[in-house]
Design a binder for these strands. Structure first.
Length: 264
DNA sequence: ATGGTAGCGTAGCTA
């Protein structure tokens, strides 16, 4: 099974790019973040027409929004709310055999890495704390689960173009890394992509729109992740990070698709 | 230190 994740930054504006990814990478499941539309406006039919007839969405007007598109039946799905908000950051689907897929969009956290000064950063930290407490209470480490999405944190030194220069930049601060690591350890999540790419090798999934030339400057960060629970880790067969999609015309997302291949 | 770009929806928020 191939499972992919992509922060698409508007599923309606970039529908053609999503279809291109499905055609080229042929994932069995694609999880999206930042769909940016209410459920009634989600473009379901083009996906149904291409064999992705099992769809779980949690969207709102203008912001956020997550989705799961699947060739495999979705037996049930659930939208979970965090921090007392209904801001459409988490949808989960149960597949045949009891495997559970989670599409997640962690709050970005604003610009100032201080929860006292910046409520968005406080929200990000609280979001991680709540999820860290939730996993062991709601699930078991021996459950077969896949957690993917835009976590908005680049935890490792070589998940960013300059560890030193980004230590004070939201997405790579020690407090965020500490909290993401705590969530990972809460139920033994395995960072699937880093099973294939050694920690001393640079790896990015996002490049800012604000760079003059994202490819030349290459100031990227690895914000998008695929985690699996221990029972699935032994079945990991391969991965992909589709860097070239950052240049897909006419209007690329600032994130690129990430996938893993799994023997179930 | 600053400003740079993008989407939604048509101002100003969010990233």
């Amino acid at each position: 099974m191939r499972i992919a994740t992509w922060n698409i930054n508007s599923v309606r504006l970039r529908l053609d790019l999503v279809l291109r990814l499905l055609e080229e990478a042929q994932p069995d499941i694609l999880c999206l973040q930042e769909t940016k539309c209410i459920d009634d406006l989600f473009p379901r039919q083009p996906f149904i027409d291409r064999g992705y007839g099992h769809i779980a969405v949690a969207g709102m007007k203008g912001y956020n929004g997550v989705a799961i598109l699947s060739r495999l039946p979705i037996e049930a799905h659930a939208v979970t709310h965090w921090c007392g908000k209904e801001d459409c950051r988490h949808v989960a689907a149960r597949l045949p055999g009891g495997i559970e897929v989670h599409s997640l969009y962690v709050p970005s956290g604003g610009d100032i890495p201080d929860p006292e000064q910046n409520p968005k950063f406080a929200h990000k930290l609280q979001f991680l704390d709540e999820m860290t407490a939730w996993w062991p209470q709601a699930r078991q480490p021996d459950d077969r689960m896949i957690l993917v999405g835009d976590f908005n944190i680049a935890p490792l030194e070589h998940d960013v173009w300059s560890h030193k220069q980004l230590l004070d930049v939201v997405s790579h601060t020690p407090i965020e890394v500490e909290k993401l690591t705590a969530m990972q350890e809460s139920i033994g999540w395995v960072d699937a992509v880093r099973r294939f790419v050694p920690e001393d090798r640079k790896l990015y999934t996002w490049w800012s729109y604000r760079a003059r030339d994202w490819d030349v400057s290459d100031r990227g960060r690895r914000l998008d992740h695929v985690w699996v629970t221990p029972p699935l880790a032994s079945g990991l067969k391969g991965y992909g990070v589709l860097r070239e999609a950052r240049g897909w015309e006419p209007k690329p997302s600032d994130h690129v698709p990430v996938w893993v291949d799994l023997d179930l």
